[in-house]
Design a binder for these strands. Structure first.
Length: 863
RNA sequence: GCCCGCUUGGCGGAAUGGUAGACGCAACGGACUUAAAAUCCGUUUCCCGGUAACGGGAGUGCUGGUUCGACUCCAGCAGCGGGCACCA
């Protein structure tokens, strides 16, 4: 018999699906719709294993839902703008447009070889004007509705290249190419007012029932709603004041200093007349813009010489510092420090010799003789007291619990006109300006006379010019000979185009809607199509997008709704976040990384370098990355084993949310199973009964078992696929195919039940190994496509068992099992359990105190 | 530094308050073969007793707790990973 011909079979069915437009999606109000979407890829050159995993997961969902009768939309496109194209342009002298389009062509071919059930007619690419023109229009709509504004903001600046750097281009505070110490600079930039929706974005997380809890938690923390107070501290000696935000107004009596952000207007004013302070601010600017860098840097401050007056304590003066850990972007850019009750403030106070004034004591200490002792210890402690308690040393707050003291403090501040209770969000507005070439041009003109002028709708799109060069650092749009010179749309006088482009998160914030009508010309998408298809029923992608991309998309959907583009505010009803694909790492004797195909495993289990035979050190599995060389090219797997094998391996070894270890042995195991399945139709042990033959009655015992297992498996796999437990679904299918192979030919009714089991296996593997399943389906004599066949349904009568094995424990330890009728009386179960010899031995004369019977599960005898 | 996860045999995992290790990988033993590959059958958490059937003990990162019963719930700790606003 012929071996299963992977390549020929896979190409054949891919062609068949394409010719018949099997996966073309059309709006159809008579059928329930289901929109499955995987995060679209950045066209970096070739697909990687992360893509294979992501798109396999989505494809199983798409094919399964289709079989269940849904009208499925399953599209694919390209997140085509981005930094790597510009890096390639600089390093390899390829134009970003050409590089990107060539990459797309290669990657499209690779995805097609995977047999993914996409409607390729809906393919989009965000770097084409047909796509980005619509987001230019949306930007102008947002501007008209005050969802867009312009302000100064900080960027990483490479003083050697005279270029803005992305955070990833800043390595240990230095520019990745120049090695120069990176500085912070201020530029006028465009912002989207995501904070206008802070409350709604937070509140609506509750409704996203099919999102992972941890993603909702991360977004909740990111939005970071906190209640507290804004407080004005009058500056001693003049009539200005410093406004701070605090979540602990109850500890105001413990205040011992004020700290300003280095970017606070007052700090910058003071720095003008204070060279040392100026140098300190410059030093802070060298930390860079990333929060991680600022938070991990040593906490430092600089005394300004200024003092403020305490709002509650007449005569108390607090020194004002500038501190490197205070963020201008959060609150008011100024804080008050209460060292006794905040660890960071305490560290700061110890460093600069500031007072530590305890103002909260634990409830159980308050009013006891230990109270004094507690306060005395805290005043000299290295650890702040941050837990709940009762206010002390706090005038009118004394004796109040923390929560009550907060309210009382706010009320007093308000009465004094020194502040008020306030809600503060950590979420900041979204800066979308990028000083880069390979992005969507921001449709704005700067006119010396009229100022900022939106490009009129009739002049859209503002097309990104392709005749640019990368021979010098900075944004090529700045150096383009004429692109930026335009007539002002308002007054007609010479003006200058905005040369910044959009953050690439802009494109990915609405592409899911574009797929509803990807060819719409006059608008981003047809309202009717969006109303039909949206929201995305199941979105699938990496956990690394848990906050930014997903939050921006949620915001964008709300903004589009405000502008009347669509009628909903949550884009993704269901979310599945998949884990990474990992591989063990190899280092040669010289310590350099080796690719998996540069090493070989010997029979004795050791691993050596191919060719030289030198010893290789094996490292634990880590995320596949070019830098560690622990990558396997999906195309080599497709060549050697085919798409179904790659898909099976991606699904069978780990649950989707977890990381997956790629192993050569695992892929071989998957390949063996593919061939074993093929043999079920190619060399059947038991010939299937002819179609239409009635179920023999009675069945032999073995046949009856398989008959029941078939139906149990159909039910179990259906349940598993509904909740994305693909690895469990495959384990069940393997159990069924194992049982099918083990069925004795002489069992009564063997032909009939073998045929039934085989047909069930083929239908169940359909979503996961679609090529093999089609080939087997055809071999079973079907003239139709499996892709068009409905999902099998289990006979409920066959799922009911009449007996069940019940575990018997003595004091929680397993001592045996008894076979009992399903749902038998508790007394019967107890009697049968106590009758076991082993149980009697375990009790061995001790008194039975209690017997716990959990019907159909367990009997626990307590002695 | 802050936020969020994860940790179960040699390995990937299953079991989400009720028989820990389903299913697979690897390894070992056997069958088939002149031989190999492929395929098929069997064994495999660890320790103790037993020729065996089997019996006993320990065991889900670590330390405690709740419960008749904990991989599962709670508290603390450790290790590893994701995110931190200009990578996508």
């Amino acid at each position: 018999m012929a071996k299963y011909n992977v390549q020929e079979t896979e190409v054949k069915w891919q062609r068949t699906w394409a010719e018949r437009a099997t996966f073309a999606a059309r709006e159809d109000s008579t059928r329930p719709k289901y929109y499955v979407l995987e995060m679209f890829p950045y066209p970096s050159g070739r697909i990687h294993m992360g893509h294979v995993r992501n798109y396999t997961l989505g494809d199983v969902v798409a094919r399964y839902k289709r079989a269940r009768g849904f009208n499925v939309l399953h599209p694919m496109g390209w997140d085509a703008f981005g930094l790597p194209a510009e890096n390639a342009a600089i390093e390899n002298k390829v134009h970003p447009a050409r590089w990107t389009r060539e990459n797309i062509a290669v990657m499209r071919g690779q995805l097609q070889r995977m047999g993914l059930a996409y409607d390729w007619d809906r393919e989009i690419s965000t770097c084409e004007p047909e796509y980005y023109r619509h987001e230019q229009k949306m930007f102008l709509d947002f501007l008209a509705r005050d969802l867009v504004y312009r302000r100064e903001s900080w960027v990483n600046w490479d003083p050697v290249e005279n270029t803005v750097l992305a955070n990833e281009q800043v390595i240990e505070g230095k520019g990745w190419r120049s090695g120069a110490i990176v500085e912070k600079r201020q530029l006028a930039q465009w912002f989207l007012r995501i904070t206008a929706f802070s409350d709604d974005l937070l509140e609506s997380l509750k409704d996203l029932a099919r999102w992972p809890e941890r993603v909702r938690l991360m977004q909740e923390n990111w939005i970071g709603r906190s209640e507290g107070a804004r407080v004005f501290f009058p500056v001693a000696g003049n009539d200005s004041k410093i406004e701070i935000f605090t979540t602990r107004p109850d500890t105001l009596f413990g205040a011992s200093f004020i700290a300003l952000s280095p970017h606070h207007p007052l700090a910058r004013d003071l720095a003008k007349g204070d060279a040392a302070l100026g140098e300190f601010v410059a030093e802070c600017n060298r930390i860079g813009t990333s929060e991680a860098a600022i938070e991990t840097a040593e906490k430092k401050g600089h005394k300004t010489g200024l003092e403020v007056l305490h709002p509650f304590v007449p005569g108390r003066r607090l020194p004002v510092f500038v501190a490197n850990f205070v963020l201008m972007e959060y609150g008011t850019g100024a804080i008050f420090g209460c060292p006794a009750h905040d660890q960071r403030d305490l560290d700061f106070a110890r460093k600069y010799g500031l007072a530590v004034i305890p103002v909260v004591v634990p409830k159980n200490v308050h009013g006891t003789p230990e109270e004094k002792d507690f306060i005395a210890k805290l005043a000299v402690a290295a650890e702040a007291y941050v837990a709940d308690g009762v206010a002390v040393n706090s005038g009118f707050l004394d004796g109040l619990a923390v929560e009550d003291a907060k309210h009382a403090a706010c009320a007093r501040l308000e009465a004094l006109g020194q502040g008020a209770g306030a809600v503060q969000f950590r979420l900041r507005d979204w800066g979308v300006s990028r000083q880069r070439y390979w992005g969507c041009p921001i449709p704005i003109v700067h006119c010396p006379a009229c100022g900022v002028v939106p490009v009129p709708e009739k002049d859209l799109p503002v097309v990104l010019p392709e005749d640019v060069t990368f021979d010098r650092p900075g944004n090529p749009l700045e150096h383009h000979p004429n692109w930026k010179n335009v007539a002002c749309p308002k007054c007609g006088k010479p003006a200058r185009r905005e040369t910044d482009t959009f953050d690439t998160f802009f494109e990915s914030s609405w592409y899911f809607a574009r797929f509803c009508s990807p060819k719409a010309e006059t608008r981003p998408f047809e309202r009717r199509a969006a109303d039909y298809w949206l929201p995305v029923d199941q979105y699938i992608g990496g956990i690394e997008h848990a906050v930014l991309h997903l939050l921006y998309s949620r915001f964008f959907t709300r903004a589009m709704k405000e502008c009347g583009y669509l009628g909903l505010k949550e884009p993704f009803a269901g979310l599945l976040t998949q884990g990474m694909v990992c591989h063990e790492t190899y280092r040669g004797a010289d310590g350099k990384w080796l690719f998996p195909d540069e090493v070989e495993r010997r029979a004795d289990g050791t691993v050596v370098q191919t060719g030289t035979g030198a010893a290789v050190a094996i490292g634990r599995a880590e995320k596949m990355s070019k830098s560690r060389k622990n990558v396997v090219d999906p195309e080599s797997i497709l060549d050697a084993y085919g798409a179904d094998t790659a898909r099976l391996f991606m699904l069978s070894d780990s649950p989707p949310e977890r990381d997956l270890d790629w192993t050569e042995a695992g892929i071989e195991g998957a390949f063996r199973y593919i061939n074993r399945l093929w043999r079920l139709v190619d060399e059947p042990i038991i010939p299937a009964a002819p179609p239409g033959e009635l179920l023999p009655d009675p069945l032999g015992a073995e046949a009856e078992k398989l008959h029941r297992l078939t139906h149990r498996t159909v039910a179990a796999v259906t349940r598993d696929l509904d909740v994305f437990h693909f690895n469990k679904a495959i384990a069940r299918i393997r159990e069924l195919s194992n049982a099918l192979e083990a069925l004795p030919a002489e069992a009564g009714g063997a032909e009939w039940v073998a045929g039934e089991a085989l047909e069930a296996v083929v239908r169940l593997i359909g979503p996961m190994m679609p090529h093999l399943a089609e080939a087997m389906w055809q071999r079973l004599g079907h003239a139709t496509l499996l892709a068009d066949a409905p999902w099998p349904v289990a006979d409920a009568m066959l799922l009911v068992e009449d007996t069940v094995a019940v575990a018997v424990q003595v004091n929680g330890k397993l001592r045996g099992t008894v076979e009992l009728p399903m749902d038998c009386a508790e007394e019967d179960a107890e009697r049968a359990a106590l009758a076991l010899e082993n149980v009697a031995r375990a009790i061995s004369g001790r008194k039975v105190r209690k017997v716990i019977v959990v019907p159909n599960r367990i009997v626990n005898v307590v002695v």
